[in-house]
Design a protein around this nucleic acid. Structure first.
Lengths: 264, 264
DNA sequence: GACAATACCGTACGTCGTACGGAGAATCTA
DNA sequence: TAGATTCTCCGTACGACGTACGGTATTGTC
């Protein structure tokens, strides 16, 4: 059955494929404010569609997000959505920017480290709430919407005026967000594969552990055997997302601190 | 058209959904060595299928990897593949482990930092060669094949015997690989969106830059405006993957060095 | 030569995004 | 008020996808 795969796969998504002007107008909601003339009045809004689509993606993943299912939720025909949104790709871009808007634009209190840590945690929480955001390609050619730009500004202000060059500021903010994305992706994987396979980590490990022992020769890989056993014991799984995030964030911030100290 | 989206989306993939025993037998190639009796002799091999599928995924992305297209490349009917591989999911797992085998299992020379840096660069190169690996969920419940385990062992040996606990060793190796994955994903995005949209970074930037200026108010986000302009100027794009990787890797290793020094 | 096991694969089902074009409603113009 | 215009809504259809099912052809064993 196709849905056997559907429950296992998500769509990856590149931004901004359609008409750039239309795309930007949608993101900044600067479209058709004068045009409100003839014809029946709209029964939907872009925001309503975005909200319904976000609900669906939150609950079932980007793979389950189909135009048909969004339309069903809104009680309209599938093709009606295309009156408001030029394509699924653009819809996802708008969803992304809207989700970025959930994070407060105010900077946290404290020095650069506390602020950077706060924004990292805010992103982590955001990705946990909206795992599908990690599927949206937002690094190389981000959807240039108002909220994602506000987030960039907030992150940058954490490290402004402490002796870094503009390029270094950009790099520092980027390395933190790359790291948080990586860690969040691992966490989402853990949750997602548990949901999709209907197996807890324990069950998975007790299924594969014995099978691995049959083919795995510990004497060939003594370090992996020892450390893997210790980690499996400690986490009752192959990986502990929360612990991994905390450990890695501390390391990354320590590394940035080394740089900043050297600039003083 | 469906292929409009096809060129923009990839499948994300969870490992190990089918029969675990069959899965492991396939990964370790411990299946059907005795069985070679009646019936026509096999015209294909698992390795051949994996090679063809990997070629296809390398060239066109995981989205373009379909059982139909792999079968076409091999000159057989689509369903013939299912004689060798239980499903597309298992095929991708085997592809993943095979690709892991491309990295030499020998550790690099030098101290922990040189070794860790070398494995990070090896992973970076591997992901550049096989971008689709980043789509395979390999952190929470990795495909437990021989080559990915060998890679885990190689990474761990870099930090063995320098005063870290087993759990810390696991965490250190994990944070590096999480970071490298994040950075590689950004790089692959950059290359992929260039390929899929047929636009260079310059073209993209010169298309969206002016549109952004129309709606973006620099006085609301002075820091983002200043730093974004500096970065855009320096990279001629929103992001420079190579530079980002180098900068971030240095930070992460610095952070790990802080930890290791504190253990002495 | 009969039988069993295996490889190969044509067909069919339900999914997807969305192009196309028609139906009906609301407003503007005359 | 009548007609024209313009907009919303959406039914239908196409070609892609993974793969279940069952049939056919090929090979080995007895």
């Amino acid at each position: 059955m196709a849905d056997t795969m559907a429950s296992r796969s998500d769509d990856k998504h590149y931004g901004g494929r359609g008409d750039p002007a239309r795309s930007m107008a949608l993101l900044w909601r600067s479209a058709t404010p004068p045009a409100r003339g003839r014809g029946p009045r709209p029964g939907l809004t872009v925001d309503g569609i975005v909200a319904a689509a976000t609900d669906l993606a939150d609950a079932e993943g980007l793979a389950a997000l189909s135009m048909r299912r969004v339309a069903d939720r809104l009680g309209v025909g599938t093709m009606s959505l295309y009156t408001y949104v030029p394509s699924k790709a653009e819809l996802v871009d708008v969803m992304y920017d809207a989700a970025c808007g959930e994070v407060s634009p105010a900077p946290a209190a404290g020095g650069w480290r506390a602020q950077l840590e706060a924004t990292a945690r805010a992103s982590w929480d955001l990705y946990r709430r909206h795992p599908w955001m990690l599927q949206v390609m937002a690094m190389a050619r981000p959807p240039l919407g108002p909220n994602s730009i506000a987030g960039y500004d907030r992150d940058l202000r954490a490290v402004d005026g402490i002796g870094l060059t503009d390029l270094e500021m950009d790099s520092v903010v980027t390395v933190v967000s790359v790291y948080v994305q990586g860690a969040a992706r691992a966490a989402v994987e853990a949750a997602g594969s548990a949901r999709d396979t209907g197996m807890t980590d324990d069950e998975w490990w007790s299924e594969y552990g014995p099978l691995l022992e049959k083919v795995f020769d510990p004497s060939r890989f003594p370090v992996a055997a020892r450390v893997g056993a210790a980690a499996g014991e400690a986490y009752q799984a192959a990986y502990d997302p929360e612990h991994g995030f905390e450990f890695g964030l501390a390391r990354v911030l320590d590394g940035i601190e080394v740089l900043i100290r050297s600039r003083r």
